[in-house]
Amino acid sequence: MRNFGFTTTKSRTIDYEKIDTRLISYILQNEPSFNACLSCGSCTAICSAGNLTSFNIRKLSLQIRLGDIENTKLEIDKCMLCGKCLLECPRGINTRNVIMLIKKGLNIIDKNEI
């Protein structure tokens, strides 16, 4: 590619037709409760990892829905799997399973298996 001396930034508009759905479909296939999130944020406020870092599980779940796999990779490793969010979630989402599925899903995507 020729260097024109400037770079274009990625569009900020969400294009719902071009979302990378590999990760979200993998999670939903194995943990349908993930769809029930109402973004109340209680998981994030109570999060032990969130107390120490910028980890925001609610935001992450939105990003996964929008197919942001790169950022998910950076963020997911902060979770300590302590289970507080599981106890707090008003919709009974199996959050610990979701985390493990994200980790495994990313691993599978890395290997180009999905």
């Binding site: 032990s48 107390n51 120490l52 300590m80 799997l81 493990m100």
Partner: peptide, 15 residues
Amino acid sequence: EKGACCGRPLMLAGQ
């Protein structure tokens, strides 16, 4: 105030 998890939940999950 701030604390890290003990590690048992990770252990149970195989991590």
